[in-house]
Design a protein around this nucleic acid. Structure first.
Lengths: 270, 270
DNA sequence: TTCAGGTATTCAATATACAGAATATTATTC
DNA sequence: GAATAATATTCTGTATATTGAATACCTGAA
């Protein structure tokens, strides 16, 4: 589940709309600045930021100053360049410590990643638009762990996507239009995909056998915080061949069981 | 280095000042809302948020709507309550992946936490006000790892504080007034502390022997991103008695060496 | 049911955040 | 080092974000 760039819409356009609609446009601008700085590989100057986002330089300056004052943005007085500041970590920490799903899911992820030698993720479903990785565990010791958390993916991609399509309660038209925007290594046809979604609904979990990333098998099972809507998913990721050998059926069973147990603990299932 | 609550100033007052001074007050308000939601143990309603922060409810509503639109805040339409949204994780991830200090420090922290059986932290110095934990490693397998990151501490507390006092280039008056606000388990007198700061300057690293938390010994060594100002520190935390037995001198030497090596790699020392 | 006591939300007047031009500052070129 | 071309920053009038009151919407009590 390596992160991919999906179609990147002109940021100016979207931002302009958000600013127009909002009664607090400064906040939309601030968010856009933060995301731009997050994506940027190097600190940026005022002009570069303003140009990229289609903002008036003076307005952009005020936004930046406010963000610096709030310690979300770092300002290098020598180079006059802006970058993300560590303050954003504090919010993330607050979110992590207050989220019950994480506490409950982490030990499950750790156990399964060890016994099946796969990468395990806990993902949070934000909407039909995308999902966010909120917990992760990998066999062996690797460093990517903490930076994996926070990654975003299109909602309908891979095995998780089939779960969301199966259990999310979204209309067929919406699903299809979203499906058309996805990028896969080995794209399934829409009909194939629909059949797989149907199968997911029947068996209670989803499999992506090398579609999203060639040679990589992904399993996902839904977690329900409320009975109404699937809120999270547990995900297992492994090299296709190795998984076949290491007991795919056992992993399926355990993943589905863990997801069901989590749902119960979160109150989503009686 | 368990987190402590330092004096908590009336949030309304500070926020009011920030709003007054800024040319983008909505951003200060948004930041205050995010921090409040981060601290809150349960989702909050509009009135509760507005009251706590001293905001006009209608204004607060617009702020919240903007934050929801930007996916930093989650809104439960049934209960009309607001909480932090997973979007904040994405910014944190961006920050982590773009920060050279983390990549370089993490393996060092891992190695030292293993060989000395201590908790190791990498901290980022925001200013004279506070520091933020940006990397951590503990002996054995622990879950707190990812949630430890993002914790904030007063700048002058414990061993790190003595480093900042010794190498930060701050005036004596400022140091003293800041020092007076700190809370310790076993507070040193200002004179004792000054002597320890002086010793820190001579030996290149700092020791807190049970002052901050009784029975816990903390070591810290400065890391320089530029020659001008100390930007980070490496920190080792262990039970006092165990550390004495497990070779405190060796740990001191290794910590100081690692910090020096990091500084060189970051370009802060020739 | 009707009524409080609380919530969230809309709305219209106005204080002010913002756009754009003017100025200062820094970087680059000759 | 002077001239040029960028950049960042200040300044000011006006469109508009913010306010405080008015309204709509809940939730429990009698």
């Amino acid at each position: 589940m390596t992160e991919r760039k999906q179609r990147s819409p002109r940021p100016d356009k979207e931002l302009a709309k958000a600013v127009e609609a909002s009664k607090a446009p400064a906040i939309s601008r601030a968010a856009a600045v933060l995301r731009l700085l997050g994506k940027s590989h190097a600190p940026l100057g005022l002009q570069a930021i303003a140009r990229e986002l289609g903002l008036v330089p003076s307005t952009c300056l005020y936004v930046l100053r406010a963000l610096v004052a709030e310690e979300f943005v770092a300002f290098d007085a020598d180079t006059k360049r802006y970058s993300l500041e560590a303050g954003v970590l504090t919010l993330a920490r607050d979110w992590l410590t207050r989220n019950r799903f994480n506490d409950l899911a982490q030990p499950m992820l750790d156990r399964m990643s060890r016994s099946f030698e796969v990468t395990m993720l806990g993902v949070h479903i934000v909407g039909l638009d995308h999902i966010v990785v909120v917990a992760s565990s990998q066999s062996g010791n690797n460093f990517q762990l903490s930076t994996q958390i926070g990654s975003r993916f299109p909602a309908l991609i891979s095995a998780t996507g089939r779960c969301i399509a199966a259990f999310g309660g979204h209309s067929d038209e919406e699903l299809e239009s979203r499906f058309r925007t996805l990028r896969w290594d080995e794209p399934p046809s829409f009909d194939e995909w629909r059949a797989q979604v149907e199968q997911t609904r029947r068996q209670g979990f989803a499999i992506d056998a090398g579609n999203y990333i060639a040679g990589v098998t992904v399993l996902a099972a839904p977690v329900w915080k409320t009975r109404a809507r699937m809120s999270h998913a547990l995900v297992a990721i492994g090299i296709g061949g190795a998984l076949q050998r290491n007991g795919l059926p056992a992993l399926q069973k355990e993943l589905a069981g863990a997801a069901r147990g989590l749902s119960e603990q979160l109150g989503g299932v009686a």
